[in-house]
């Protein structure tokens, strides 16, 4: 017979419960920041408008990195763009997620031998979900978003924690490719 007496939960257990409640809200209201670097960005308008309507999943576009939850990297990243992307990613408020679109973010795609374009995005910033294809069609994009929601539900979307824990590794990779991560141009002097 189960006891009906109130037994106090430990602190870890209370934190876990709160985190699960937070996860319910977070996965049902994903606000996107679209970093439209490449051609995969053209898959987002049909996903947002009346054809696939991602607002029914609670997703919507946001204007600034501070407000957004999920960063969409749509396509190839040149070195110059990667610097700005790292700035953008570090400005977002936690918990934050990244979705990489297209084969360019996975292995370089058709730009695998270019001098200006990086090959593997998840060496530089932690990517939670990849949507493969060149370009992925809109069903695949929507499926990627649903996958991200499942990952959040199963507590596997831990890229942002990984970025804290293995920051030295990420920073070493960023420095190997970029030289220096800080932006030095006419507008940042």
């Amino acid at each position: 017979m189960l006891s009906t007496k109130f037994s106090p939960m430990s602190k870890e257990e209370v934190d876990r419960k709160w985190w699960e409640i937070g996860d319910f809200f977070r996965r049902n209201s994903l606000w996107m920041l679209m970093y439209c670097t490449g051609c995969c960005a053209i898959e987002l308008p049909p996903a947002m408008t009346s054809a696939y309507d991602m607002e029914r999943l609670g997703m919507g576009p946001m204007a600034t990195p501070r407000q957004a939850d999920v960063l969409l990297v749509t396509g190839y990243l040149s070195l110059k763009t990667l610097r700005r992307l790292i700035y953008t990613y570090e400005q977002m408020s936690e918990p934050k997620y990244i979705v990489g679109f297209g084969s360019c973010t996975i292995n370089g795609g058709i730009y695998h031998d270019s001098h200006a374009v990086i090959n593997q995005l998840n060496k530089y910033i932690p990517v939670d979900v990849f949507v493969a294809g060149c370009m992925p069609n809109t069903e695949a994009v929507m499926n990627g978003f649903v996958d991200l929601m499942d990952l959040i539900k199963n507590k596997k979307a831990n890229g942002w924690k990984d970025y804290h824990e293995r920051y030295e590794w990420y920073l070493a990779n960023q420095k190997a490719a970029l030289g220096e991560v800080r932006v030095h141009d006419e507008f940042h002097e």
Partner: peptide
């Protein structure tokens, strides 16, 4: 490196050296 649009620059070698591959 040397300026990249000169014909004696090999973008593939540069990419292999600089960026990690899958």
């Amino acid at each position: 490196d040397i300026p990249p649009l000169r014909k004696d620059f090999d973008p593939r070698a540069y990419s292999d050296r600089k960026f990690s591959k899958m």
